[in-house]
Design a protein around this nucleic acid. Structure first.
Lengths: 347, 347
DNA sequence: TTGAAAGCGCTAACAG
DNA sequence: CTGTTAGCGCTTTCAA
């Protein structure tokens, strides 16, 4: 059943009769609405405390707010998402809003189901982190529920966007490797999963930028991409694929730290040392990348700030204070550690 | 507001009139209840599809089920939790149930808030993963909502328990290190955060077992514990603390892989090599532990199975098919990799 | 400023 | 097997 044990639950009717006022009055006090005298407010509050009243969420949802922010995460195994969530939770801390998370999964069918679950539960706002769904689908959702999308570089009139400047980030990483003297720089990317809008997905932008920067340095012929997944296993598989080429790359730019860790495993398995034989750069600057024994060169992009900002924008939308949509871009920076160095023959 | 855009939302009344039946009939079809002819069922289903009807979650919650399973996770940064969740999602896959996740956080105040959020939203069942709250508090929740608790070794009449055999696991790890010839085996543990029931918490059991096994081998004087947190940073700090002792340990048993990774960083910073100078064992067998360049010896305990089982037990409870409570224990096994070896002087 | 009353969409008795 | 109807607890006009 409903409450925290036996017995009928306490309703606003109970509070009302206990405080000798109407249910309307109680409702108003609960919502901090206008038109309640201080005296009445006090009486009601006292009654609420005495009776241990808790609002019935579902009943509330029937007419008004749910005080819930829904968060769509592709999968919780990526530590970068944890940072985003930390930022969101921090920003939500002072408010009455509660975050609930659903996992979108690998394909856009299961993601759709997860988003529907949020919409069905009438969350007051939705944060979609790196969604696979098409822009049309996102706008469909955004038309009904305040929405912020984190990841894709899209501008929509219906939702706010928060993302890192993936072009700048990828350029930093690839540029760094080339500046060290590398020519055969390969890339570990992610396969397109959603069938919606590859061009604006962050993995596509990182890959495209890699290709552009290579070409700009006259290295178009050296372009080598393995498109797997931004996971440890994906990185490992992709790196093996890249290392099998002849001649093999002297540097690898992984689109995500997780993939870079997988690449480290592959390099180890191939008997190659980092950075002497192969340099390796990642993306996200996850906690693990900073650990001394890994010391991964990577692109930092402050996930906490992104999460905080997304939450702020969402709360603004929920409060109804903003009609126009907004785009927030975080500028990344390169963190050079010991996983990158000049190529052997140039040393 | 509510729906997927403009216009009034489709209700069972619309479906009923469109299918020329009563709302009761529609409701029954939706819930797969008894007493509906096949013909009517067909008609109703057709009407549902044609009108694009979706059940109103809040209205449903007022009277019946929410078809929601709430999951409490301490924090999403631990990859072992991702495995548990994978198991849960897999088991929920074929059903109408949706999982929503809330983050409990560091202290039991914030955990309480997260659990309340689940209870308030009238989830049909709750899975609490390694909760900090007291047993009394858990039972309070379990009295009102079907509950499964994953982690603590408690038996309660009100909820089901799923946990690894942490005694066996810790014994495997510590025994392995001692068998290799180590005497100064230290332990990286977790500080007690909740003020409820330290004795049954898995980190307490791992630590207690470490102490017991050491004593049983006549190594009581060599016991050394750093109680920080099961995180990378916690492991790093704790390991530095342990390594500062004189004489320093020749082996470290970390209560979690995440802490072991932090310890690897600390060892690297101290200029010590693994396993030549110090052997290191972890717990959980996370994906990363298996990567070739880390090759962490660790205790495997099949988080997916735990998640699957927890979900199964929860669904049984939700369906009301079981009165008695159940305890499910997963037997761990040791995965020996290259991070452990005989001590230097014994080699 | 206050309160009475009409629903929100659904489920579950209860009648037919 | 099918339909009628009374609420679930809350918010929200609309009067007083």
């Amino acid at each position: 059943m409903g409450g925290a044990g036996r017995g009928r639950r306490v309703t606003i009717a109970d509070v009302a009769s206990h405080a000798q006022v109407s249910t309307t009055a109680v409702s108003k006090v609960l919502r901090n609405a206008y038109g309640v005298s201080t005296a009445m407010r006090e009486r009601v509050r006292a009654a609420i405390d005495e009776l241990g009243y808790r609002p019935h969420h579902a009943a509330r949802a029937m007419r008004g707010r749910t005080f819930t922010i829904g968060v769509l995460l592709p999968h919780i195994n990526n530590p970068f998402f944890a940072e985003i969530l930390d930022g969101l939770m921090e920003q939500l801390g002072g408010t009455d809003y509660q975050a609930i998370i659903v996992q979108g999964g690998r394909d856009d069918t299961s993601e759709r189901r997860a988003i529907d679950a949020l919409v069905d539960r009438q969350v007051d706002g939705i944060l979609m982190v790196v969604p696979l769904s098409s822009k049309a689908r996102l706008e469909e959702v955004a038309a009904g529920t305040p929405t912020v999308v984190l990841g894709p570089h899209e501008r929509s009139a219906l939702y706010d966007s928060v993302h890192g400047d993936d072009e700048a980030g990828a350029e930093l990483a690839v540029g760094h490797l080339i500046a060290l003297g590398h020519r055969r720089v390969a890339h570990l990317g992610q396969q397109d999963l959603g069938h919606g809008r590859p061009a604006t997905m962050l993995h596509a932008i990182r890959e495209r930028t890699y290709r552009r920067v290579m070409a700009e340095h006259g290295l178009a012929d050296e372009i080598a991409v393995a498109a797997t997944a931004y996971t440890e296993e994906g990185g490992r598989r992709g790196a093996h694929e890249l290392l099998a080429r002849d001649p093999r790359p002297t540097a690898i730019f992984a689109g995500a730290d997780l993939a870079a860790f997988g690449a480290l495993a592959a390099l180890h398995e191939a008997g190659l040392s980092v950075p002497a034989d192969v340099s390796l750069a990642g993306y996200d600057n996850t906690r693990a990348a900073g650990l001394a024994h890994l010391a991964l060169t990577t692109v930092d992009q402050d996930g906490t700030l992104m999460g905080r900002t997304a939450a702020r924008l969402l709360l603004e939308r929920v409060a109804g204070g903003r009609a126009s949509s907004v785009r927030f871009s975080v500028t990344p920076s390169l963190v050079v550690r010991r996983s990158t160095g000049p190529p052997q023959d140039a040393a």
